[in-house]
Amino acid sequence: MLQVREASVVFPTSDGRSVQALDRVSLDLPPDSIVVAVGASGCGKSTLLNAIAGFLPLTEGSIRLDGEPIEGPGGDRGVVFQKDTLLPWASVVDNVALGLRYKGVPKRERRERARALLRLVGLADFADKPPYELSGGMRQRVGIARALATDPKILLMDEPFGALDSLTRETMQQLLAGIWAQTGKQVLFITHSIEEALLLGTTIVVMSPRPGRIVARFDVDFVRDFASALEIGPIVSGRRFVELREEIRALIHNPPLSRHGALQ
């Protein structure tokens, strides 16, 4: 269980003032969940993820993973970045095995486990290629496999499909839904696409900017259907999906003034 309690982050700006990127955000991420944070740019959703990843210290509040306070990055939280961060000098399989190498897993064993993960993301044939010979979508799959390799407690995904074309993005979304359905891996997913949030989330938190805060929370369940769906059309055109999409859109464009609007 990941618990975020009253987390605030304040950044100094270049003109000597400060920006409240996160304002007393509280959030529970239960195991087996996909929590999707959705909001316009500047709403603090990436700040929240960076704080959970341990890249960014909180100004106030606390983040605990299974009761342990987070004090920096660690192998118990796998991160998938928007920009791919693969190592160009290592083959795809060695990129996936990087976290296992840090753990001291012997070469043969870590490559075997990396190959199994590459099969999971459909890249078994590309294990020995250098990453720069892969397309953007394929590189993001390698990034997901790499984050899964150390078997983290939670997968943190920061707009991982934001830079992909729309067709590739749909494939990747369903791949992630399928992986989640298979592994039950807990995920925190950041996006600015409402549709992506609805398709992938079991919980959706809507965030609004200045200061970054959570204004609403929805528990949904489209992802189970999506994971095994042959057609995406019936899901996204369903009545409840459309209603929620419009409700969230309205919340993002006209956020309520009171804090902690629909939380808990």
Partner: peptide
């Protein structure tokens, strides 16, 4: 790139 360093740290690099 700072992302490359962050990625390695989140994979547990000492």
């Amino acid at each position: 790139p700072v992302e490359r360093i962050n990625a390695a740290r989140s994979l547990g690099a000492s």
